[in-house]
Computed example of a mutant assay.
Amino acid sequence: MAYAVLLSLTLVLEQTLNCDYQYLILSEKQQIASLFDEVSFLQDFLDNSSQKNIKTVECLESHIRDAAYKTEDIIESHMTDRVHEESASPTFFHKLEKVMEEIDSIKKMLEKIEDKSNFQDQQQQIRSMVTVGKSTVVGCDDDLL
Rank of each mutant, 00 (worst) to 15 (best):
32 I>W: 01
143 D>I: 07
83 V>G: 03
145 L>C: 04
49 S>K: 12
28 E>V: 06
24 L>Y: 02
56 T>E: 15
56 T>D: 15
32 I>M: 06
106 I>G: 12
53 N>F: 01
2 A>S: 12
1 M>S: 09
2 A>N: 03
21 Y>D: 13
101 E>H: 00
122 Q>A: 14
85 E>W: 07
110 L>P: 08
56 T>I: 13
86 E>Y: 11
144 L>A: 11
2 A>E: 02
99 V>P: 05
37 D>H: 04
93 F>K: 02
38 E>H: 03
127 R>H: 12
116 K>C: 03
84 H>K: 13
8 S>I: 01
87 S>Y: 13
39 V>A: 05
9 L>D: 04
93 F>P: 01
11 L>M: 07
33 A>W: 08
131 T>A: 07
54 I>Q: 13
142 D>H: 01
114 E>V: 10
99 V>R: 03
71 T>P: 04
65 R>H: 11
33 A>L: 13
140 C>M: 15
69 Y>V: 15
34 S>M: 06
143 D>R: 02
3 Y>F: 05
110 L>Y: 06
81 D>G: 09
111 E>F: 08
74 I>D: 08
4 A>L: 07
94 H>M: 03
16 T>Y: 13
90 P>N: 02
134 K>F: 15
82 R>G: 09
115 D>L: 14
122 Q>C: 08
22 Q>R: 15
93 F>V: 03
110 L>C: 14
47 D>H: 04
70 K>R: 12
71 T>D: 07
116 K>G: 05
65 R>L: 07
131 T>M: 01
26 L>P: 01
